[in-house]
């Protein structure tokens, strides 16, 4: 995987929301806080664990505690992904 994008993250966010299908993630949400989008710390951990399982990155709880926006999440994942060839 070359680069983790906001669209990739939105995919995880929709899966974490599960039956809460009404959550709208359209538009530019990069700098909107997860809380304002309806994602509390437990929901953000759920997204992080999906990313850990599927991308092989490490997103420990202590690190995630400082992640407040989708942009910060995307940046954190990209720091850990191997550079594209």
């Amino acid at each position: 995987m070359a680069m983790f994008t906001q669209a990739d993250l939105v995919g995880y966010m929709r899966r974490a929301a599960g039956e809460d299908e009404s959550i709208s993630l359209d538009g530019d949400i990069a700098e909107v806080t997860f809380a304002d989008l309806g994602y509390d710390s437990l929901a953000v951990m759920e997204i992080a664990s999906l990313a850990e399982r599927e991308l092989g990155v490490r997103l420990p709880e202590e690190t995630m505690a400082g992640v407040e926006t989708p942009q910060q999440f995307v940046d954190l994942v990209n720091e850990q992904l191997p550079a594209s060839v």
């Binding site: 809460d20 009404s22 806080t33 989008l37 309806g38 509390d40």
Partner: peptide, 25 residues
């Protein structure tokens, strides 16, 4: 915590209802 959960509800997603906290998140 409660209004963050509430933001998942269709009534808030549609803008019919809204939420504000008295203290920081």
């Amino acid at each position: 915590g409660l209004i963050t959960l509430a933001r998942r509800h269709p009534a808030l997603q549609s803008g019919h209802c809204d939420a504000v906290g008295l203290l920081p998140a």
